[in-house]
């Protein structure tokens, strides 16, 4: 029987380097949305600590253990990058294929995002480990500072091409 081939969300959309910044698709990782059931917040955080080594993140923040991230993703929601854990007391949904994931890095990288994102991403306000659910142009996005000069940007998989195009345009305009 035939085997199915994998395709990454941004397949065919190459890395872009402009003005000292670099935009590239991040390597796909297992991904899950964790939503604790009623009254289970503390227990789920504890269970995450056991299973992943990282608790449930505070709003606008992330929790991290090595390459496993728990990114706050909305009201009582956390997006886990690096694992799809089985957790009692939580609705866990596999999202490994749902998001296109880009890393944008370089000095003053917030100045690129300032072209298409209305959130204050200056390092002193949005340091490493900070995250926001916001807009990227007209797209719903999750933006996290995963390193001092790197922002991780997640958009719907189907919008990968638009996101890549708009980020490249933002890089060109910010470089000008």
């Amino acid at each position: 029987m035939a085997r199915l081939q994998e395709t990454t969300p941004a397949a065919g959309l190459g890395a872009v380097e402009i003005g000292g910044w670099r935009l590239a698709e991040a390597a796909p990782v297992p991904m899950a949305l964790v939503m604790p059931l009623k009254g289970q917040g503390a227990a789920v955080s504890e269970a995450m600590e056991q299973a992943l080594g990282t608790g449930f993140p505070q709003p606008g923040r992330t929790a991290r253990n090595g390459e496993t991230w728990a990114i706050w993703a909305g009201r009582e929601q956390a997006l886990v990058l690096g694992a799809v854990p089985a957790l009692d007391g939580a609705a866990v949904t596999d999202q490994s294929d749902a998001w296109a994931m880009f890393d944008l890095s370089g000095p003053n990288v917030d100045r690129v995002l300032a072209r298409i994102c209305p959130v204050d991403l200056r390092p002193r306000v949005f340091p490493e480990g900070a995250t926001a659910r916001t807009l990227l142009g007209h797209m719903s996005a999750s933006i996290t500072r995963i390193a001092p000069e790197t922002l991780r940007i997640l958009v719907f998989r189907s919008m990968a091409r638009t996101a890549h195009h708009e980020l490249a345009r933002a890089m060109e305009q910010a470089a000008f």
């Binding site: 939503m35 059931l37 009623k38 939580a90 609705a91 949904t93 490994s96």
Partner: peptide, 12 residues
């Protein structure tokens, strides 16, 4: 009601 939901349109 104790229910949680999310979109999986893009996942599948």
């Amino acid at each position: 009601l104790d229910v949680r939901f999310c979109s999986v349109t893009e996942q599948w």
